[in-house]
Simulated assay, not measured.
Amino acid sequence: MDDQTKLELEAAAFRRLQKHLMQDRPDVQNIDMMNLAGFCRNCLSRWYQEEANARGIDMDKDQGREIFYQMPFSDWKAQYQTEASDSAKKAFEASHK
């Protein structure tokens, strides 16, 4: 496989993951993703921002989140984020000290 095809496949897989998390499964909470997988939507948006910054593109955390979430993060939280259960909070604290 040539490098350009590999790049295009990786980009398509990222877009598919983004769609899955944003449109197909907005019910899955970030804290649950962190507890199970060790990353969440915020991690993905931060990685996006960090890669932009590494390439000389001026992007802050809020801009990275808005690109990944496809809306302002405050809107996402208002529409989809729920209060984390006590057990989810305890699991997060235990695994992310």
Rank of each mutant, 00 (worst) to 15 (best):
A84C: 03
A52G: 05
Q4E: 14
Q79Y: 01
D60M: 03
T5E: 15
T82K: 14
D75T: 11
T5L: 15
K61T: 04
N30A: 02
F73R: 13
R25E: 05
M1H: 13
A37Y: 15
M71F: 01
L44Y: 10
D27I: 02
T82M: 08
A84E: 05
E66Q: 14
D75E: 14
S95R: 15
L9Q: 14
Y69A: 01
L21G: 04
S74G: 06
K77L: 02
P26F: 00
S85T: 13
I31S: 01
D86E: 13
Q23R: 10
K61N: 02
L9H: 13
S85W: 05
I67P: 06
F39A: 08
E10M: 11
Q23T: 08
I57Q: 09
V28T: 01
A52H: 12
Q4A: 13
A91S: 07
D24T: 04
A37D: 09
E10D: 12
R16D: 13
F39V: 09
E83Y: 09
H96S: 01
A11L: 11
I67G: 04
K90T: 12
G38D: 05
C40N: 06
I31D: 02
F73Y: 14
R55H: 12
N35S: 00
C40E: 01
D32M: 04
T82H: 11
R16S: 14
L17C: 13
E51N: 15
K77W: 01
V28N: 00
L44F: 10
D62M: 08
G38W: 07
D2P: 15
M33E: 02
D62Q: 12
S45K: 10
C43K: 06
D27Q: 04
C40Q: 03
A12R: 14
A52F: 09
T5H: 12
E93P: 09
G64T: 07
D75L: 09
A11V: 10
F92M: 06
Q23G: 02
K97W: 12
M33A: 01
A13G: 05
T5W: 12
Q4H: 12
A54Y: 08
R15C: 07
P26I: 00
S45A: 14
A13Y: 10
N30F: 00
R46A: 08
A78R: 11
N42Y: 08
D24R: 04
M33K: 01
S87A: 09
L9W: 10
Q79G: 00
D60S: 04
S95A: 15
E93W: 11
L44K: 12
S74T: 10
A91G: 03
